[in-house]
Design a protein around this nucleic acid. Structure first.
Length: 470
RNA sequence: GGCGCGGUAGCCAAGCGGUAAGGCAGAGGUCUGCAAAACCUUUAUCCACCGGUUCGAAUCCGGUCCGCGCCUCCA
């Protein structure tokens, strides 16, 4: 099955045909590093991670660029509030971001360009736009993009430029824009900016918000590239403006496929600090949920569907993952038994799983369905396992298949297990001894003691198994 | 007001023209010394509501109600 994605540009699913066969250029909107990201942000990053991993699963070489926005109104404002130099302030959040990526098992991108390190590229772009007369300079030394000189404006979000209302949010310093909807390419230095400014042909200032993404994506991926992603809220104005300024500068199509992921709500309500339902990854870890569990929760809903995040959902995820863990553990312990010839049956289980999994992902990254394919396989194989009808060679094959699935999902591999303390081990052995003597009262009392210490013991045909209670 | 998304079992959630995936939870059973795990059976005659198109609709069209997002710096 061919890979297809829902392209926001055309509002329909389209077969994915990369610009260069066998490769995919991917620009994923990254964090503005002025704060710790919340779980909604992570929904976007995990969606982007699934996209990346799926492209690889389908044999494409991926070149992913994720920007770090380390200069904008908020970074400047908050750094000043804390009396820190901008780069020192943003470094804290960059570090936290990368730590979180690890916790969430998000694969690193090939490039993480920071806006502050690409000022010259941005200035070049502004220069080009001025040359092409789609931008103009104002008296204070700012440069704006002129929407009226770019007829295609609004193609992504289907907005009528005439209808853009002038919101009350227009800054006092933008009074000399030709049109309220024109957006800043370069912002002249203001007193509040402190020492955050760069020299430019138009005087000291800093880049406009959208400029970095155009400049950096084109630098690393070329003037025209395959895929650009972000949250739906970024479609306007951010992505719309990116398209305008990039295509006006190059005369070429900027991005071929735009993918946007929907938002996350919490217990049916919009996440907001005032409602007290605003969570960072740290908050979840403090509540004893793992990154793996959050990742699983986020994979359960298709990325273009609003996701209702609940703590019940996190608990459900825990249980579902335990089912996966029990299964992989069972495969690892699997030993050859007296086997009937089950090759035909085994083959059909594997084939169905593989093809269902593959077509689920191919169809616009349907992770919910991919997960269903995984669980169907688990049930089928458990059935064979119950009949002692899986050879060790077959179980190895299955473990290999699971790791292939996990190269996309990133949730199958268990978290590092706490080693079993010797004392616990000893008690389990003692209990096993008691069971052999048919001293079940003693065996059960030992099991109760183990439970109290936080360990569950399960008796399996291969001997007792200890599980940490969570 | 404009543009757009959604309402599917107790909860989460796929499916988007051919007769309801999957996970969690619940009930009964098999297995087990007892458990746990696993497996089996079971849990929506029905997909917000009302009309229409069709041999056939949760899926398409129109309308109604409800929830949500964006409309200049929020994933």
């Amino acid at each position: 099955m061919d890979l297809q994605f829902y392209n926001s540009l055309s509002r329909r699913k389209e077969k994915f045909i990369p610009l260069n066969p066998g490769q995919a250029g991917l620009y994923t909107c990254g964090p503005t590093v002025y704060n710790y990201p919340h779980i909604g942000n992570y929904r976007a990053y995990i969606f982007e991670d699934i996209l990346r991993r799926t492209l690889k699963y389908f044999g494409l070489r991926v070149n992913q660029v994720m920007n770090l926005t380390d200069v904008d109104d908020k970074t400047i404002r908050d750094a000043a509030k804390e009396g820190l130099p901008l780069n020192q302030f943003t470094q804290r959040y960059k570090d936290a971001f990368f730590a979180d990526l690890k916790t969430l098992r998000i694969e690193p991108a090939e490039h993480y360009p920071a806006a502050t390190e690409h000022i010259p590229e941005m200035i070049d772009l502004v220069r080009k736009l001025l040359e092409r007369k789609v931008a103009y300079q104002t008296e204070d030394g700012s440069v704006y993009f002129s929407i009226s000189r770019y007829p295609k404006y609004g193609c992504l979000v289907n907005l009528d430029p005439q209808q853009l209302r002038s919101s009350g949010r227009v800054n006092h310093d933008e009074y000399d824009k030709e049109s309220v909807s024109d957006f800043a390419l370069w912002k002249a230095r203001e007193p509040e900016d402190g020492d955050v400014w760069w020299d430019s042909p138009w005087g000291p200032g800093r880049p406009g918000w959208h400029l970095e993404c155009s400049a950096m994506s084109m630098k690393y991926l070329g003037e025209s590239f395959d895929i650009h992603t972000g949250g739906v809220d970024n479609m306007f104005p951010h992505h719309e403006d990116e398209i305008a300024q990039s295509e006006a500068a190059t005369g070429r199509q900027f991005v071929r496929y735009w993918l946007h992921c929907a938002h996350l709500i919490v217990e049916g309500k919009k996440m907001s600090k005032s409602l007290g339902n605003f969570f960072t990854l740290r908050d979840l870890l403090d509540k004893n949920f793992s990154g793996r569990e959050l990742r699983y929760v986020l994979l359960g809903t298709h990325y273009r569907q609003p996701l209702n995040f609940t703590f019940q959902g996190c608990r459900d995820a825990k249980a579902a993952l335990e089912r996966i863990d029990d299964f992989t553990e069972r495969l690892r312990r699997c030993q050859d038994k007296s086997l009937e010839d089950n090759n035909q049956q085994f083959k059909s289980v594997i084939e169905r799983a593989e093809s269902d999994f593959r077509s689920a992902l191919a169809d616009d990254l349907n992770t919910a369905e991919a997960l269903a394919a995984l669980f169907n396989m688990i049930r089928d194989v458990n059935r064979l396992l119950d009949q002692n009808n899986i050879s060790s060679q077959q179980s190895n094959k299955l473990l290999h298949l699971l790791s292939q699935f996990d190269s996309v999902l990133g949730v199958i591999e268990p978290d590092k297990k706490e080693p079993v303390p010797p004392e616990i081990e000893r008690m389990a052995r003692e209990r096993q001894e008691a069971r052999k003597q048919k001293d079940f009262a003693r065996a059960d009392s030992l099991r109760d003691q183990l439970t109290e210490l936080g360990w569950m013991v399960e008796d399996t045909p291969e001997g007792p198994k200890l599980k940490r209670l969570v």
